[in-house]
């Protein structure tokens, strides 16, 4: 449990979620034994049904997906602490990618039955898991929307202008690598898609915080009194 709490604390430091304590997040994963895997172990495989989600406590995981021609492509490397494989459980979809250990890794597994229990539970552990996943997906969406908007701005800008503003699209804060055999635009679309899948989640927070405040909908509280 100490290992889980420590990893939960590190996860929440990197991805703060209001109202979630590290102990509660650790408790959500606390009923299963920690699994230690060797290099190249496949934690989950692309196109298989999701029967569990994973909390990567130590090590790295390589994310691999087949492209439209069936060629496996390494999309990203995710470092601990990280949550993996939750989308399949949330919407009963197939795995969008395979996850392979890169070196040795320690993983806590949350099986689908326990996951479903936690989704219904009015306990700190249940709330922690729901809120951590909500926050993770909200960051994915905000970051991806930000990237898409930049792409549209570029596409809308006159191509002949030497002064066209091209702000950098958010980059992963750590160890994410894209293969470089496609053109820039193609790679950017792929990277935004990866943000949505959650593989480049840590790229998002800093950029979101830099968003310029134009107005505030705090006025909503003042201008819409209850009848």
């Amino acid at each position: 449990m100490t290992e889980l709490i420590s990893a939960s604390r590190a996860y929440l430091q990197r991805n703060p979620v209001r109202g979630v304590a590290a102990e509660a997040l650790a408790e959500a994963f606390g009923r299963t034994a920690l699994l230690r895997y060797g290099d190249r172990h496949i934690i989950c495989a692309e196109n298989e049904p999701g029967d569990a989600m994973y909390f990567l406590l130590e090590g790295k995981v390589r994310v691999r997906r087949k492209d439209s021609r069936g060629k496996p492509r390494d999309l990203a490397t995710v470092e601990a602490p990280a949550l993996i494989g939750h989308m399949s459980l949330i919407d009963d979809s197939l795995r969008s990618a395979s996850c392979l250990c890169e070196g040795r890794a320690v993983v806590a597994t949350l099986g689908i039955d326990r996951y479903r229990e936690l989704m219904e539970e009015s306990t700190p552990a249940g709330a922690a898991l729901r809120r951590v996943l909500c926050a993770s997906m909200a960051r994915q969406l905000v970051s991806a929307n930000h990237g898409i908007r930049e792409l549209i701005q570029r596409a809308s800008a006159p191509t002949t202008s030497p002064t066209t503003h091209r702000p950098p699209v958010p980059r992963a804060a750590h160890s994410t690598t894209l293969t470089g055999d496609r053109d820039v635009s193609d790679a950017e679309l792929l990277r935004i898609a990866n943000v949505l899948e959650g593989w480049q989640l840590n790229a998002t927070t800093a950029d979101v915080s830099k968003m310029q405040v134009v107005h505030s909908d705090a006025d909503l509280r003042r201008t819409t009194p209850r009848k």
Binding site: M87, I90, D91, S93, M119, E120, E121, S122, G126, A127, R130, R131, L133, C134, M137, A138, Q140, L141, A144, N145, I148, L196
Partner: peptide, 18 residues
């Protein structure tokens, strides 16, 4: 609890659509 589950489903749907 119900509201949080609904939020999760809403976010997942938006991610899939995007």
């Amino acid at each position: 609890v119900a509201l949080e589950r609904h939020l999760l489903e809403t976010l997942a749907r938006r991610i899939r659509r995007t």
